[in-house]
Design a protein around this nucleic acid. Sequence first.
DNA 1: TATATTCTTGGAAGCGCTTCCAATTATTCA
DNA 2: TGAATAATTGGAAGCGCTTCCAAGAATATA
Lengths: 345, 345
Amino acid sequence: MSVTIYDLAREAGVGIGTVSRCLNNHPSVSAETRAKVLEVIKRLSYQPHASAQRLASKKTNTISAIIPFFTNYFFIQVLQGVQDKAAEFGFDLILYGVNNTSQAEYYLRRSLHRGHVDGVMFFSMKLPESYVQKFQQIRLPLVLVDAYHPEFDSISVKNLEGATMATRHLLKLGHTNIAMINASLATQPARDRMEGYRIALEEADVPFRNDRVFISEIGKQDGFNREAGRASMEDLIGKNSGKDRVTAVFIASDVQSMGALEGAAELGVRVPEDLAIVSFDDIELAQHAQLTTMRQPMYEMGVLALEKLTTRMKNPDAPPSQTTFLPSLVVRRSCGARVPSEQLV
Amino acid sequence: MSVTIYDLAREAGVGIGTVSRCLNNHPSVSAETRAKVLEVIKRLSYQPHASAQRLASKKTNTISAIIPFFTNYFFIQVLQGVQDKAAEFGFDLILYGVNNTSQAEYYLRRSLHRGHVDGVMFFSMKLPESYVQKFQQIRLPLVLVDAYHPEFDSISVKNLEGATMATRHLLKLGHTNIAMINASLATQPARDRMEGYRIALEEADVPFRNDRVFISEIGKQDGFNREAGRASMEDLIGKNSGKDRVTAVFIASDVQSMGALEGAAELGVRVPEDLAIVSFDDIELAQHAQLTTMRQPMYEMGVLALEKLTTRMKNPDAPPSQTTFLPSLVVRRSCGARVPSEQLV
DNA sequence: TATATTCTTGGAAGCGCTTCCAATTATTCA
DNA sequence: TGAATAATTGGAAGCGCTTCCAAGAATATA
């Protein structure tokens, strides 16, 4: 059938052990023998059998990434970082896109199959407690991205602090009637971002008002989507009249902002003249839409995630490491701050 | 160490063959025995060893997708279709994002390793001739997406016809001075779309003029990117004066259009009042930007790609099948056609 | 009841590799 | 020059599974 190391060994007049050592660049092969074997490998255009290598070596050089709604721009950009770094290390990356918790668990289980992958990256979801033990038991490296658990390596962004910075920026621009458009409070980021918003307000002695938080959970991703952003904005605008009109809004994500911008345009509300906007993420589109936003270092997070995974593989017993990034304010047009145009990014 | 079928067999008091048959739902196991084995499997929380299964069964249940610049929205949407269908069939999907031909070849070679994947999807690039033979020899299923080769299954879109339709639409709206913003003519889609543009013009007795085709190859992806679109638009606007001013432009892709819109806005050119735009792809953003565009059924293409791959696995000797989609015109604001707002998509 | 069928079952062989150990050969040191 | 050491090498064992074949058990047939 196809060429195996036995064929190579016979053809080169050496033992299979020697052939294997040649393939794996083991040092204890004489230059002469190595040359001979390499010649035969080339001549028979030998291809090692991946499954056999994996079975024998107990390494797969494969990792899996379990990502909710991976078509979301945020994940795409993180994924780009993961992908680039994986290529550099020679890992295959299995992409598991999931739409709900039960799918996520399915792929966690699948990743736990022995001999399937050497590591797992779990994105933006709460790790079910029942898997904590399993991962520890199998000692399968796991990195949480945009999530946290004390027992595992994790990478996340300071949502609360970021939201505070965003809101402070609006306060500094003179706004006091500041609303928030949020996603489902079932998600940690939404809770943290709201808390940050509240803190900034209270720092400035502006009372937090529940009726100024607009949440829509329509569509996918717990409301982190365009339709929900649009719905919330329409809701906001519909109720926005009277003396203490809202003049600014902090939106929990850029994706929602895209929808919110549509809604505002539709209803004739000008941004930033009538309504200033600051949002969160800095996806690629934010630049196009000229959104002032809190930048998350998405690509860098992806790179770091892969690095953490490889570090963990080499050193399974190191204590879990947690890295948090502080998002940074990127000022563009939507907040109404005057920016010299050459500073616009 | 970990639990193997030998442990299961011993514990359940049966042979390893029987255990294996239970695991693979082989019919010839008595209900009684099966129950007993399943109980033990559960009790010992057995996990089959993926590599061993693959080695013995010669199946990997894995496919690879080789995609240039996968963060491009076009690919993301195709990928979503692939991903959904792969999940349905129980395939693992390895994502190989590539940035140039040599990377693409590297991953083609890698995918050809025996026992690595059961099939390959190759996106939007010309398949190097040297791999034609290799794939046929190893009989590894290969599907070309947004590309074509007579020896393999392929899925593509009629770029030429689509471009003709797009240009005709502008002609029908009364424009006669119609420019085109294109990407590198090194790519087949760019050539086809330009040819379609030319055909529509000539049909209408409007002479094709080389100085009305604006091509920028800055940035990645052979000019299919935002910066290039913006540069071309700025170039166009800079030269656009006099009696036969350009009043409409056909842009080769939505991504370029996004940049073009930015450039136009920057220079105070209103779309569609001063300049009508029709472009190509219908990525998610096109809706947000209200682009009139030629819709490619991206998700459906992804789904179909996966289906073709599985069909090919079952039937390796079928003749290659080629599927082409005709893109459809989606009318939004950027072309200036009057559309009842409830018809806007 | 004896024989022919059909179900079930056990386990050896084999998938193609890595690795370890023992053996052989080459080299070094006194 | 001979013993000791180091560098190479061959190949058995083992990774954990699937599958095939032969055999035993159960059922059907006459």
